[in-house]
Simulated scan of single mutants.
Amino acid sequence: MTATCKTGTLKWYSNSSLSTEVTSTTVSPAATTTYYAVCVTNQCKSAGTPAVITVTPGVQKPTVNSPLAICLNDSTTLSANCAAGTLKWFSDSTLTIELSNTKISPQSDTTLCNM
């Protein structure tokens, strides 16, 4: 978190009553949290200015119907379910080669990735 004071020393607080000081400007709240920036000169505090840190939930992994076992020269259709978003399949672990078709016919043991 960053802020500036024209005069005095910047302090951060985790409550609007300015009674709980935050000693680090690096925070990792689990939920959206409001912090308050205050300028302090001698024993005097300015009014607190709110700074809202908005936490966005991460994307959940899909539920994959695997492992799939098929015989050589057979094919299968990949399937999975996403709670939200769009399901995409990749043929590499770095998620750079997207599959355009979910019907596959691998010729050896194959690991496919999804997101």
Rank of each mutant, 00 (worst) to 15 (best):
S79H: 06
K61Y: 12
T20C: 04
D74T: 11
L112M: 07
M1F: 13
A83Y: 02
C5L: 10
T34P: 03
C113S: 10
T111G: 00
A37Q: 00
M115G: 04
V38S: 02
S17L: 09
S28P: 02
P62C: 11
V27S: 07
K103D: 05
T2W: 09
A30W: 03
T7H: 12
L87I: 06
Q60N: 15
K6Q: 14
P67A: 01
V64A: 05
L78E: 01
L72R: 15
V52L: 12
I70Y: 11
P106R: 00
A37Y: 01
S14A: 11
T111S: 05
A47Y: 07
T111P: 00
S17V: 08
T25V: 13
M115A: 09
L10F: 07
A3Q: 07
T94N: 12
S19T: 15
L68T: 13
P62I: 05
T34H: 03
C39R: 06
G8V: 08
S19M: 05
Q43F: 08
T32A: 08
A3I: 07
N81M: 10
T2V: 12
T56Y: 12
V38I: 06
N42I: 06
E98C: 05
S14I: 03
T32G: 05
N101Q: 07
T33E: 09
T33N: 06
S19D: 09
V38C: 02
L87Q: 01
T26K: 14
M1V: 11
A84N: 09
T96N: 10
L112D: 00
T32L: 08
T4S: 15
N65D: 15
T2P: 09
T32R: 02
V55Q: 06
P57K: 13
T96C: 06
V64W: 01
T76A: 15
V38Y: 00
S14V: 04
N42R: 12
K103S: 10
T49I: 14
Y13M: 05
T96D: 05
T26Q: 14
S93A: 14
G48D: 02
S100D: 07
A80Y: 00
W89L: 02
T2C: 07
L18C: 02
S28L: 11
K103L: 06
A37T: 04
S28Y: 12
S75T: 14
I97S: 13
E21I: 10
P29D: 06
G48I: 00
V59T: 15
F90A: 04
V22C: 03
